[in-house]
Simulated assay, not measured.
Amino acid sequence: MMNFTIFLALIVVVAFLLIVVIMVQNPKGGGLSSTFGGGGSQQLGGVKKTTDFLDKSTWYLATFLLVLILASNVAINKGGDSTDSKALDPDATTTQPLPDAAPLPTTNDATTANDTAQ
């Protein structure tokens, strides 16, 4: 169970980073590079390459998230208990307890005879 908890924490962190990286990007192509004036011939510390970095980091984070999700499936403790349906197992026999039979109402012959006589 501890391995699954580690995978779960990593999935949450990577998903948060992926959200941040996607939100920083500008859908019209400007993005973070246009904030620093990277749209023209000016460059502030290589900001023109920022969109390439954000694009690649989005793909890497998305791939890493997918791998973590698939790997977490292996880490889930299956346990010895089988939670599969017994309907799929032809050898399984299940016995269900019968409900207690409710007592039938008793009819008194004297009252029945009086009811029919009237």
Rank of each mutant, 00 (worst) to 15 (best):
L88H: 02
T107C: 02
V67Y: 04
S82L: 14
I69M: 09
Q118K: 07
T93D: 07
G79A: 10
A101G: 01
T116C: 02
F7S: 10
K86I: 15
I69K: 07
T94W: 06
F16Q: 03
A15L: 04
T111L: 14
T63P: 00
G40I: 14
F4I: 01
L18A: 05
L65F: 13
V74P: 00
T95H: 06
K49W: 10
D52V: 11
V13Q: 03
L68E: 04
L88T: 08
L68T: 04
D55T: 14
G79H: 07
G46M: 10
L44H: 06
Q43R: 04
Q25S: 11
K49E: 10
L44A: 09
L61Q: 07
A15F: 06
A87F: 15
L8T: 04
L104A: 14
N73Q: 05
A102K: 14
W59N: 05
T95E: 08
V74G: 00
A113T: 11
T94G: 03
A15C: 02
N3F: 08
F53R: 08
T94I: 15
D100E: 11
A15W: 00
Q43F: 03
M23K: 03
A62N: 03
N73T: 03
D91N: 07
A87M: 15
L66C: 07
A9P: 00
D81Q: 15
I19K: 09
A102F: 14
G37W: 14
T107K: 03
A75D: 06
W59E: 03
K86Q: 12
V20W: 00
P103F: 11
G39H: 04
L88P: 00
N73D: 00
V13L: 07
V67K: 06
A101N: 01
D55Y: 12
P99S: 12
V67G: 01
L104E: 08
L8C: 03
N26M: 10
S33V: 11
V12C: 00
D109Q: 12
A15P: 01
T63K: 05
A101M: 01
M23T: 01
T50D: 12
G39N: 05
T58Y: 12
T95V: 13
G46W: 04
P97W: 10
A15N: 05
N108W: 09
P105Y: 11
M2Q: 07
A9D: 05
Q42Y: 13
L32P: 07
L98K: 10
P103A: 15
V13G: 00
L104Q: 05
L8R: 04
L65K: 02
P97V: 15
A71V: 08
S41V: 13
G37T: 12
